[in-house]
């Protein structure tokens, strides 16, 4: 990502020539999706082709980001490039927000509209009369068909609360690291940045533990009606974002150890730190609306 525009920075907008990464990325995506299609059609090699595609995608990400970091450290970027990175960050976050709005929207629609309608609320009384059952619209539910059988939800005051505390603590550690970087305290920066991604990985581990608990002791599965099919995608996609965020923090940590970034110019750090705060806020929203209200 963009480094400090300095007096030695290029006056021209830097455009790399002969970069292999776009075509590598295209081949990787084609292979991944092609492998997935083969898999769905029960072709034996499907999963292997898809895995190869994902591996190539990882190579592309590592190679491309590595190139960008070298270009940044080589002072090839000027202020215009810096602005492009910031704009890119904004649109990336916009797409992320829309992604989560879709999933939270599904939860909201189910809870506020479709489940109450099935229970005969409002003008949908006829729905209940025609169905002729005694379904009561209470949340959590797996619907009138009791899809997946009787289940229990994960109590908020177990792993979810511990995970919330862990993520909030990681929010504190990343903030301390942020202020340390701005103050030029590299030692504190490195320690608290490491603490942040370690807390992130512990969160993911506990989330996995919670899923095992849900499947084995609560009969709560992805197939548990509307509750299971909103609970798991929401929490799993969030967990995926925490994983990605923690990996990004690890990269930034290695860059810090190598002496990258200055107290006044550290957009890559700021971008990843902001993303971590974003993931934290999404979890808080999730904790409140999925486990509590």
């Amino acid at each position: 990502m963009a480094h400090a525009p300095t007096s030695t920075a290029s006056e021209k907008y830097y455009v790399p020539h002969g970069s292999p990464w776009p075509i590598v990325g295209s081949i990787a995506l084609f292979t991944t999706v092609g492998g997935g299609a083969l898999w769905l059609n029960h072709v034996h090699a499907g999963p292997w082709v898809m895995t190869a595609g994902l591996a190539l995608l990882a190579v592309m990400f590592i190679g491309w980001f590595g190139t960008v970091i070298r270009e940044s450290e080589g002072r090839l970027y000027n202020e215009a490039v810096d602005r492009s990175f910031r704009m890119g960050m904004m649109w990336f976050i916009f797409s992320e927000v829309m992604f989560f709005v879709g999933f939270f929207g599904a939860l909201l629609y189910a809870r506020q509209f479709s489940v109450p309608w099935l229970g005969g609320e409002g003008t949908k009384l006829l729905t209940k009369v025609i169905r002729g059952d005694d379904f009561e619209a209470v949340w959590p539910t797996n619907g009138p068909g009791n899809i997946g059988g009787d289940f229990e939800v994960i109590p908020a005051f177990g792993l979810p609360a511990i995970n919330t505390a862990l993520l909030l603590l990681s929010g504190v550690t990343i903030t301390i690291a942020h202020h340390a970087l701005r103050a030029g305290n590299r030692r504190m920066l490195n320690i608290f940045l490491a603490a942040t991604f370690l807390l992130g990985f512990v969160f993911v581990y506990l989330q996995a533990t919670e899923y095992i608990e849900a499947y084995t002791h609560h009969n709560l599965k992805l197939s548990t009606g509307i509750y299971g099919s909103t609970f798991f995608p929401l929490t799993a996609f969030h967990g995926f974002h925490v994983t990605m965020g923690a990996i990004m923090l690890v990269v930034i940590w290695f860059r810090c150890l190598k002496g990258h970034f200055t107290p006044t110019h550290h957009f890559a750090f700021e971008g990843v730190a902001w993303y971590w705060h974003f993931v934290d806020v999404v979890w808080l929203f999730l904790f409140i609306f999925v486990y509590w209200l």
């Binding site: 810096d82 942020h178 700021e270």
Partner: peptide, 13 residues
């Protein structure tokens, strides 16, 4: 503050 213009590091923090 992160995405406008050159960014304002102090305000972001």
């Amino acid at each position: 503050h992160l995405t406008r213009g050159k960014g304002d590091s102090k305000k972001v923090a």
